[in-house]
Design a protein around this nucleic acid. Structure first.
Length: 502
RNA sequence: GGCCCCAUGGUCAAGCGGUUAAGACAUCGGCCUUUCACGCCGGUAACAGGGGUUCGAAUCCCCUUGGGGUCACCA
């Protein structure tokens, strides 16, 4: 295979949706796997849809994911510029080539006229297509006399350049993921290639740019499949060798039908975007929700691609090593927010206590507490298997920092027995005698005492937990008492005794 | 509606002519235990339907059904 060059070509019309991120990811994985180049090209040929901040958002999103752009607006490269609006001057000449070769023509129909025709067809339950059947009846350089259309041109009348789709011709082409596809040109229309505002449409621009940038593989979403025949025809008309195509299956919404949209995220409470979108109608992002980029990328990679093994946890490096486009599935994948959480949990649990402690530190400070690093490390180690996100850690450790102010009524009802007061009072005297307050030593002493007295272990321990924690929750009780220390433990027993009493 | 794509449990999915049809998430039991979680063990649960091809089809072909995408001077 010659040099692999792939591009991710989003249009900056808003925040990048996770489906787009996945497309970028697959392009990136494919490029790196094949020692190729990953290019970021901004497709902003529609000036009316320009959205401030979108371009930057795209770049930040990729960066957050760990996807490194080889060639692009910021990175430079030998095939620039990498923003289509900066390439504006370059497209017209290619439209002219098609005009000269007779593969394209001028059309003067106004959008209003075309709209009217479409509506008319709709009434008759037919689809209006601008093709060989009707173009003779419309206003263009094919139907009009040469003097007429040249006159229009000279007068400066608005026009577009359309591709002259041949009649009744089978186009055979191949998609890496889907195999052979045949489409008859009669079902296709004369797409606009060049708009009256002097900008090319996507169709022209992407072919010209992919050719000029020597793109070897076009990996994009399935929604582009219907326009692939046109693109193939364009390559042929130019006499250029077309790149190889791979159309990725769509990401579907978790419930119901259709492709994933922003609405689903709002409705079901999960993000549809990698980062928080701060403009206009804001949107949640995975980063701000507390997802690790590694977990996010891992989850996304496995949505539509599978290595064929049982391995599920992949670093970006491992993804690159095992990725292959042939193993991308054909059918759409329904996105599952639960599994996304699970992935994050896996990554969180695999963090070292040291890493986790430093990540949690700011959250702890925000709650108004500070603690030595080694103590915090010990603490997160005790509870990390119980959460999926760093921000959820606080709810697991709050009672380590503050003694209970109230006691869970349910727990009292269930765990506070008639002899709890007596037993906890005794327990207190036992604990007072212990010098080494380590978890194991304390446990040993307490268990010995319970054994000697013949108490019910569960009864004692649950009541003990109730006064220490304030509820029936938390890790191993002696890990807690060891961490908060002897003094605090005794204080909490007293407080519980007098508060719950009886 | 035209055109195109797709079809294995609730979800992600393995399978690429011969399997007791994996595994993961979720769910439900059980074990562990001093609560909860983790962990471990186990259960429920799938080849959309119908025709072919074949000694033999989840796997190949056709039809039906279902789902999705796309039909702009948007990408």
């Amino acid at each position: 295979m010659s040099q692999v060059r792939v591009r991710f070509a989003p249009s900056p019309t808003g925040p990048l949706h996770i489906g787009g991120v996945r497309t970028a990811l697959y392009n990136y994985l494919f490029a790196k796997k094949n020692n190729g180049t990953f290019i970021l090209r901004i497709e902003d040929t529609d000036q009316t849809r320009f959205v401030e901040g979108a371009e930057k958002y795209i770049m930040e999103s990729l960066k957050w994911c760990g996807i490194i752009v080889d060639e692009g607006i910021n990175e430079g490269g030998n095939y620039g510029p990498y923003r289509q609006s900066d390439r504006k001057s370059l497209y017209r000449q290619y439209a002219d080539i098609l005009l000269e070769k007779g593969y394209a023509y001028y059309a003067f129909d106004t959008p209003e006229q075309l709209d009217a025709l479409r509506k008319e067809s709709e009434k008759e339950h037919k689809t209006f297509i601008y093709n060989a059947d009707v173009r003779e009846k419309l206003n263009n350089s094919i139907s009009l006399k040469e003097s007429e259309w040249k006159e229009k041109l000279n007068r400066g009348e608005n026009y577009v350049i359309r591709y002259k789709m041949p009649q009744n011709e089978d186009i055979n082409f191949e998609d890496i993921i889907r195999g052979k596809i045949v489409v008859n040109t009669s079902t296709l229309d004369d797409k606009v290639l060049f708009k009256s505002d002097g900008m090319p449409t996507y169709h022209l621009a992407n072919i010209v740019d992919d050719h000029l940038m020597e793109i070897s593989h076009v990996i994009r979403g399935e929604e582009w499949l219907p326009s692939l025949p046109l693109h193939i025809m364009l390559y042929r008309s130019f006499g250029w060798q077309a790149p190889l195509f791979a159309h990725l299956p769509l990401l579907l919404k978790p419930d119901g039908k259709g492709k994933l949209s922003k609405r689903d995220g709002d409705k079901m409470g999960f993000p549809v975007f990698p980062l928080f979108w701060p403009y206009g109608e804001t949107a949640k992002g995975y980063r701000e929700e507390g997802y690790y980029p590694e977990a996010f990328v891992n989850m996304l990679a496995l949505l539509g691609w599978n290595p064929g093994t049982e391995k599920e946890i992949f670093s970006l490096k491992e993804l690159i090593d095992s990725f292959s486009i042939e193993r991308v599935g054909k059918s759409g994948s329904r996105f599952d927010p639960e599994k996304a959480k699970w992935f994050n949990h896996q990554y969180l649990e695999n963090r070292t206590d040291k890493q986790l402690a430093s990540e949690f530190k700011e959250h702890l400070n925000a709650h108004g507490y500070q603690v030595a690093d080694d103590r915090l490390e010990a603490l997160v180690g005790l509870v990390k298997m119980r959460v999926s996100f760093v921000k959820d850690l606080w709810d697991q450790v709050d009672f380590f920092f503050k003694a209970p102010e109230t006691y869970d009524q349910e727990a009292i009802k269930k765990r506070w027995k008639d002899d709890s007061v007596k037993q906890l009072s005794e327990l207190k005297t036992i604990l007072e005698k212990i010098d080494d307050f380590s978890s194991s030593r304390t446990e040993e002493a307490v268990m010995t005492w319970i054994g000697e007295k013949g108490y019910n272990t569960g009864a004692v321990m649950n009541a003990f937990r109730l006064v220490i924690v304030g509820a029936s929750r938390g890790p191993h009780i002696f890990d807690i008492t060891s961490w908060i220390g002897k003094e605090e433990t005794l204080r909490r027993i007293d407080a519980g005794l007098s508060s719950i009493g009886r």
